[in-house]
Write a protein that binds this DNA or RNA. Structure first.
Length: 99
DNA sequence: ATAATGACCGGCG
DNA sequence: CCGCCGGCCATTA
């Protein structure tokens, strides 16, 4: 991975305010990435110090191995979760929140 | 060079 | 609700 791209993605995730969420696709777009997958890789091996729990799938669900902690953290920030899925309609960030 | 594997996405049946 | 497919792209074998 190119370090610049890697860092743009991290910046986009850091820009998500508490109590709000975004999707892999939106973060990718905000970071100028053409694929949502790259966002997943970055969070996978370099997401420890980022608010990764504010990044969800397009339908508000999350990958099974992180779902528990993700839901717990989000609830703590006041984000609603119904049936294991975040209510995107109320907490999703506008598509161009970065710039 | 090919193929499989993901913290993905959207469409279709 | 479910699964399948094709597209996506870096990493690994």
């Amino acid at each position: 991975m190119d370090e610049a791209r890697h860092e743009r993605i991290r910046a986009a995730v850091r820009a998500i305010p508490e109590g709000r969420v975004s999707t892999y696709g939106d973060v990718a777009a905000a970071a100028g990435e053409r694929s949502a997958r790259v966002v997943g890789w970055v969070l996978r091996d370099d997401g420890a110090d980022l608010p990764w729990h504010r990044v969800l799938r397009a339908d508000g669900s999350s990958a099974p191995h992180i779902a528990d902690e993700q839901h717990a953290r989000l609830r703590e920030e006041g984000v609603e979760i119904r049936d294991g899925r975040v209510v995107l309609a109320n907490h999703r960030l506008a598509s161009g929140w970065i710039s």
